[in-house]
Computed example of a mutant assay.
Amino acid sequence: MKDLKFLVLGSLLIASSLNLTHAASFSCEKAKTATEKAICQNRSLNDADVNMVTTYNIVIHALPMGGRDAEKGAQYQWLKQRDSCRANVNCIAQRYSERQKHLDDIVQNRILTQGPF
């Protein structure tokens, strides 16, 4: 269990420390919405997107089935909220901050303490 905790934390640290130049979780070349374009044009939003998606993927793979379904629904609702910001960088940044905090709480309080392991 201890090794898995280090693996999860290590994955998060590596993902957050990589120098990812405009590497959003979606193709910036195919960005359609004002929000997607703003994320692609703003390095801090781009980094927040990559960090959030990395954490989300860890959460989705570590939660049991019922938790996964609930978190997928929460992600869908969050995307709608994020996209309602349009090109407002401060609004988008706030949505990412809120979502990252939620996902980090799941990692800390549910996955690392209770596991599926």
Rank of each mutant, 00 (worst) to 15 (best):
N51C: 09
K80L: 15
P64F: 08
M52V: 10
I106Q: 02
A74L: 10
Q94G: 05
D104S: 07
M52L: 15
H102S: 15
D104T: 05
A48D: 13
V107H: 02
M52G: 10
C91P: 02
Q100S: 10
L45C: 07
D105Y: 00
N88T: 05
V59P: 01
K72D: 00
L45D: 03
Y96E: 08
R82H: 13
N57F: 00
Q100R: 05
Q94Y: 07
M65D: 03
Y76W: 12
G66V: 12
Q100A: 05
P64A: 09
A93M: 13
V107C: 03
V89M: 03
N90G: 10
A62V: 01
N109Y: 09
E98V: 05
A70K: 09
V53K: 08
T54E: 05
E71S: 09
L45Y: 04
L79I: 14
A62H: 02
L79R: 11
Q94W: 04
D49P: 12
H102L: 09
A93E: 07
H102T: 12
D104Y: 01
L79C: 01
D104F: 00
A87V: 04
H102C: 05
V59L: 01
A87F: 09
I60V: 15
L45R: 04
V59I: 04
Q77D: 15
A70H: 01
I106C: 02
C85I: 05
G67K: 12
V50C: 11
V53F: 07
S84N: 13
R68N: 06
D105P: 02
W78C: 05
G67V: 08
A48Q: 14
S44H: 12
Q75C: 00
K80G: 08
R43W: 07
E98A: 07
L103G: 03
A62S: 13
Y76M: 13
